[in-house]
Design a protein around this nucleic acid. Structure first.
Length: 677
RNA sequence: GGCGAGGUAGCUCAGUUGGUUAGAGCGCAUGAUUCAUAAUCAUGAGGUCGGCGGUUCAACCCCGCCUCUCGCUACCA
């Protein structure tokens, strides 16, 4: 394996339109922090980079909604996020932001280099333009009636009512979200990164040279590469972002995904004038910690940018984690289904390490995992308190009791002490090996083994029984126990830095470096120890129930909102209604449409004729169970091809309380063809 | 529908190139113990390794089919 001279470690930039939650922590920041703290203890040269991603349309929308500037929005969240990371002990060397000057300059320079090298391709296309405000409209800035469900306020990229993804030109009666005017299609020029051209070299680089990447990352990349890459636009018509540094690009900014990863570079620039060696020297190991939603950017797009800029190194690894769920449900910012870091820090003061421990021990390294408060409590009480805290407390209390808090001199060393030394060496190696291969769960499990070893040592040797008869033996036992405490403090520091600090204070020593732990002499004989205080405390049922209660309330208020009945749509004339030709019909045949999950091909007897209708109900009904079903059908809807089958009408459906579709139907005495009015 | 990742003890996870009785932590049961935050230590009970079939002297591990979960993608008039 290659030996690197230094490390550049980045963690995904959190988007500055909301606070950070446990999902972000477990997936990205806790593992990245463990990795960096470990490297520093090993004496490696490492920079740990973080920062807020502050551009993009969602931030401008939030700003507009709140009647403030985008800068106000990102200031608020940037400061909140930065503070909570600091308080949580995420040891960034710099936590920067993409709205600052250095970043704008760096991103523009990067773009210009690609542009001047002729790497970018230019394309002119039509896009909606607001003539009142004189600006192009991003997809999110266009509102209109959803062509699928009829909701009035669908966005140009998605309808939030029915969840369909849309393109702006599909919207019925599109209007500008800014001025409310009817937008017009207008030409605009944009620049693209020709990913299709890079496909071969990317395939080789990932699929051949990086077989060691995690299976989820490797597989996802393979999936993208196999299905073929398309050129990707790197510019947008917007006014919030990094301006495109070209004269012909007035009112255009770099696309947020293009500027955001460059933020890693700008942050390093701000950190040190010597930044280039961390990004351009092949002896530097570049590692990106991200969540699985970011794989394509960090494995395909950003490396393409770095490679074709020409002077940068590529990532050595991209250890992406899966997702963390909360009490069985997906974490969701919009549904407030999350444990927010800033709230945790307030509600559990001094317990940063408990959360760090739980999130690492249960990290979604190989598959999605679930965070539960019950598990949080159990891990605190029966692992941190009972194993780690308890061992340290026992060793210290005994030393104070028998030797006035001074480290006794070891006398005769037995086989037992030797086997302990050997086991510690094995554990240390196991931790190193696991961390270096991004297996933090396993590394933490091994780190806890030192305390397990200590507890067993004390139980086996029983110093409290033999002190009267053999104080010399007790001296040896406690010397070793105290050394174990010091070793634990060092080897668990990457995972539990606050606890290690506390323990160093109790032991009355300075923080040590990693390699010293093998010697078993971190604390000299006769050294005076401070009075023991508890490293961890029990968390009782009431505390846990309070948190669960809080989540239940969130759930209730979410359900209430779900039951909110959509407001009445605007008034129409009778003529508008009379245009609809609604009839009663009967389903004669039904079959699944091949290669489509949601579609059924139905043959309907409308009374007038027998016709084919394709309907998106396959998730809720099997073909057999709906044959003979009386339905209400809109028969004069313009026919449309779906999956190659022409659909001649639309079946009316309603959603029940659980979101399942139900037929709008009538009793049997209505014949097919009966008009609905 | 296509692609990707996963389905191993109650829970969270290990299982190296296929090789004898499938492992760990937590939980549980029993016993021991009291220096320690009812903490600790020992022992034990729990698994037809998602299902079916195949290759092999031998499969959790290789191949095929099926099924469930998560993600990307197509589709939902």
């Amino acid at each position: 394996m290659k030996k690197f001279k230094r490390y550049t470690v980045t963690s995904a930039l959190p988007y500055a339109n909301g606070p950070v939650h446990i999902g972000h922590l477990a997936g990205v920041y806790v593992p990245a922090d463990i990795y960096c703290r470990y490297l520093r203890l090993k004496g490696e040269d490492v920079v740990f980079i973080g920062g807020s991603d502050e551009h993009g349309v969602p931030i401008t929308l939030r700003a507009r909604k709140e009647g403030v500037s985008p800068q106000d929005v990102v200031d608020r969240y940037h400061n909140l996020i930065k503070k909570s990371f600091e308080d949580f002990g995420i040891s960034f060397d710099i936590y920067s932001r993409t709205s600052n000057k250095t970043h704008h300059e760096t991103a523009q320079e990067f773009f210009l280099t690609l542009y001047n090298k002729g790497e970018l391709i230019e394309k002119t296309e039509h896009q909606f333009y607001d003539e009142v405000e004189n600006q192009f409209l991003a997809d999110r800035y266009i509102l209109g009636t959803c062509p699928k469900c009829g909701a009035e306020d669908a966005y140009g990229d998605q309808c939030e009512k029915c969840g369909s993804s849309l393109s702006p030109t599909e919207l019925i009666n599109p209007r500008s979200a800014i001025s409310g005017s009817k937008p017009v299609l207008k030409q605009t020029k944009h620049w693209y990164l020709p990913l299709d051209k890079y496909e071969q070299e990317l395939s080789h680089w990932i699929l051949e040279e990086h077989k060691e990447w995690k299976p989820n990352v490797y597989g996802q990349c393979k999936s993208w590469l196999d299905s073929g890459l398309l050129p990707r636009a790197v510019t947008r018509d917007l006014d919030w972002g990094v301006p495109v540094p070209l004269k012909e690009a007035q009112n255009k900014v770099l696309y947020v995904w293009f500027d955001a990863p460059i933020g890693y570079i700008s942050a390093t620039k701000e950190l040190t004038p010597d930044w280039e060696k961390y990004w351009k020297d092949p002896d530097t190991k570049l590692v990106h910690f991200i969540g699985k939603d970011n794989i394509v950017f960090h494995c395909i797009i950003f490396p393409s940018m770095l490679k074709h800029e020409g002077s940068y190194i590529l990532p050595d690894n991209v250890p992406a984690n899966e997702f963390l769920n909360l009490e069985g449900d997906k974490i969701s910012t919009s549904r407030n289904w999350a444990v927010w870091l800033h709230e945790y820090l307030e509600e559990f003061p001094g317990k940063q390490d408990v959360l760090r421990y739980v999130l690492c021990a249960n990290a979604p390294e190989t598959k999605d995992n679930d965070f539960t408060w019950k598990d949080f409590q159990t891990r605190n009480n029966s692992e941190l308190v009972a194993i780690y805290g308890n061992f340290v407390n026992r060793a210290l209390v005994l030393t104070h009791k028998y030797f006035e808090g001074k480290v006794p001199e070891p006398k005769v060393i037995t086989e037992y002490e030797n086997s302990i030394k050997e086991e510690v060496r094995r554990i240390k190696l196991a931790i190193e090996n696991n961390i270096e291969n991004y297996r933090f769960r396993e590394a933490l499990r091994e780190a806890m083994n030192i305390s397990r070893l200590g507890n067993k040592y004390l139980a086996d040797t029983e110093p409290w029984k033999i002190f009267k008869t053999d104080p010399e033996r007790v001296a040896t036992i406690l010397y070793y126990s105290i050394q174990l405490c010091a070793i634990t403090a060092v080897l668990t520091e990457p995972f539990l830095p606050f606890t290690s600090n506390k323990l160093f204070n109790i032991l009355n020593i300075k923080k040590n470096i990693w390699e010293e732990t093998e010697k078993f002499d971190l604390i000299p004989v006769n050294h005076t120890l401070n009075k023991p205080e508890l490293l961890f405390e029990q968390i009782d049922d009431a505390t846990i129930e309070k948190q669960i209660e809080k989540l239940l309330k969130t759930k209730e208020s979410n359900q209430k909102q779900m039951k909110n009945i959509a407001p009445q749509k605007e008034t129409i004339n009778y003529e508008d209604f009379a245009k609809l030709d609604l009839r009663i019909g009967t389903i004669l045949e039904a079959e699944k449409v091949p290669k489509a999950d949601k579609l059924l091909k139905l043959t309907i007897d409308t009374g007038l004729d027998k016709r084919t209708v394709v309907s998106g109900i396959a998730e809720f009904f099997t073909p057999e169970q709906i044959i003979g079903q009386k339905v209400c059908i809109l028969i004069n809807l313009a026919p449309r091809k779906l999956r190659g089958i022409e659909s001649q009408g639309m079946i009316l459906m309603a959603k029940d309380n659980d979101g399942r579709l139900k037929f709008v139907t009538v009793n049997d005495t209505c014949d097919n063809g009966s008009e609905v009015s």
